[in-house]
Amino acid sequence: MSSFLASKRQVLVSACALATLTIVPALSHQAQAQAWPTARPITMVVGFPAGGSADMIARTIAEPLSKRLGTPVVIENVSGAGGTIAGQKVANAAPDGYTVFMASGSEVSIARLFNPAVKYNGETDFTAIGLVGDVPLVLVASPRAGLKTVAQALDKAKREPAALSYASSGVGTVLHVAGELLNQKAGTKIAHVPYRGAAQMAIDVAGGTIELAFFMTPTALPHIETGKMVALGVTTTARSRAAPQIPSLSETPALKGFDVSLWNGLFGPAKLPPAITARLNKELNEVLREPAVWQKLQKAGVETQGSTPQALTQRIRDEVQRVQSIAPAAMKSSS
């Protein structure tokens, strides 16, 4: 009998020890989240060099976010491979709230669908914190193409399949995705010509070397205003705040529901504690409401929104699903 009791006592001790091993890490993570942030700096990783639009957005957010959190937020530019080197760095980081990622849909949703070298999955390897805003794209035509509306462009593309080509800043970019989504929705086969950047695209559109191109709206507006490009439509369902005179592509019946933009959001590594995610989301949304931040981002063409982590997560899922449906055709058109 005593042997039985001893055995029973040993089982109970083992069970308690196992429960303790399970509970202690959970309590430790909870304690870390409650103590966050300490005086330790938070690193905000950006996948592009200093001076670019991604860097500008990050720096505009970082300073007021630092003040609200009471700890420094330091920008680290990790450029290369279209921002995916930075993405891998953040995916590999500890989920302790001291490494965050200012990223766009190109790095988070689109890159892995076009590039097998990208090993992280934006849906599972990051924690969505909140949306910063959207930058609409705009479809433009060369003045020498004789096109004034997107309906005219689509009509010509159907009548003369080899007559038109469109330029983007590269295979797998959001500009490329916009072009292939247009082909899919309109039933056209406008050929894709990838460029290395916007500067040469602008020269070739103005000179008539290429008939159509997708640009970031802030990049194209000066050329549109001087007559070097003809604006056919912005790629969001609503007209751009920066250029309300330009129609939305979705206003054309053949492109109803057309909606593509370059969004920017804040992310952490996967398994970021919910308490830290919630705090960062709250402070990010408050920063976006600050007049100085709002005005600077609006001037740069970023239409600020803010969001919940859940809404940003859903947006990524929707974008991946949409891009997956056109990725094979997009790769074929660029080969």
Score class of each variant (00 low, 15 high):
residue 124 T to W: 03
residue 108 V to E: 15
residue 146 G to H: 00
residue 131 L to H: 06
residue 130 G to Q: 12
residue 97 G to V: 10
residue 121 N to A: 09
residue 106 S to K: 09
residue 117 A to C: 13
residue 106 S to W: 01
residue 103 A to N: 09
residue 132 V to I: 06
residue 94 A to C: 14
residue 145 A to S: 15
residue 103 A to K: 13
residue 96 D to S: 12
residue 115 N to R: 06
residue 132 V to Y: 07
residue 151 A to W: 06
residue 127 T to D: 14
residue 111 A to E: 01
residue 123 E to I: 08
residue 133 G to A: 10
residue 150 V to C: 05
residue 147 L to R: 01
residue 144 R to Y: 13
residue 145 A to D: 11
residue 94 A to T: 14
residue 120 Y to T: 05
residue 97 G to R: 13
residue 151 A to R: 13
residue 123 E to H: 07
residue 111 A to T: 07
residue 152 Q to G: 15
residue 125 D to P: 06
residue 113 L to Q: 12
residue 105 G to L: 06
residue 118 V to M: 12
residue 149 T to N: 08
residue 124 T to K: 07
residue 116 P to R: 12
residue 112 R to D: 07
residue 147 L to W: 08
residue 126 F to C: 07
residue 113 L to A: 08
residue 114 F to L: 10
residue 120 Y to Q: 10
residue 110 I to Q: 03
residue 137 L to A: 04
residue 133 G to L: 04
residue 118 V to W: 10
residue 104 S to A: 09
residue 128 A to W: 13
residue 150 V to S: 01
residue 131 L to G: 00
residue 152 Q to D: 15
residue 94 A to E: 15
residue 149 T to C: 00
residue 140 V to D: 00
residue 152 Q to I: 03
residue 135 V to H: 02
residue 136 P to K: 07
residue 105 G to Y: 00
residue 141 A to L: 04
residue 131 L to W: 07
residue 138 V to T: 07
residue 139 L to R: 09
residue 143 P to E: 04
residue 146 G to L: 00
residue 128 A to D: 14
residue 99 T to P: 14
residue 141 A to Q: 02
residue 104 S to G: 12
residue 114 F to K: 09
residue 146 G to P: 01
residue 143 P to D: 03
residue 141 A to K: 04
residue 123 E to C: 04
residue 124 T to P: 13
residue 123 E to A: 12
residue 122 G to W: 04
residue 104 S to F: 03
residue 146 G to R: 01
residue 133 G to S: 15
residue 118 V to F: 03
residue 114 F to Q: 04
residue 153 A to L: 09
residue 135 V to T: 07
residue 110 I to W: 02
residue 142 S to L: 10
residue 131 L to A: 11
residue 130 G to I: 08
residue 145 A to L: 03
residue 119 K to H: 15
residue 110 I to T: 10
residue 96 D to Y: 13
residue 135 V to N: 00
residue 110 I to Y: 00
residue 128 A to C: 14
residue 131 L to R: 14
residue 138 V to E: 01
residue 152 Q to Y: 02
residue 149 T to A: 04
residue 103 A to I: 05
residue 98 Y to Q: 11
residue 120 Y to W: 14
residue 118 V to A: 05
residue 153 A to Q: 07
residue 133 G to T: 09
residue 153 A to W: 14
residue 114 F to C: 13
residue 99 T to R: 06
residue 140 V to E: 00
residue 102 M to T: 01
residue 152 Q to W: 06
residue 143 P to C: 09
residue 146 G to W: 02
residue 150 V to F: 01
residue 147 L to E: 02
residue 129 I to N: 15
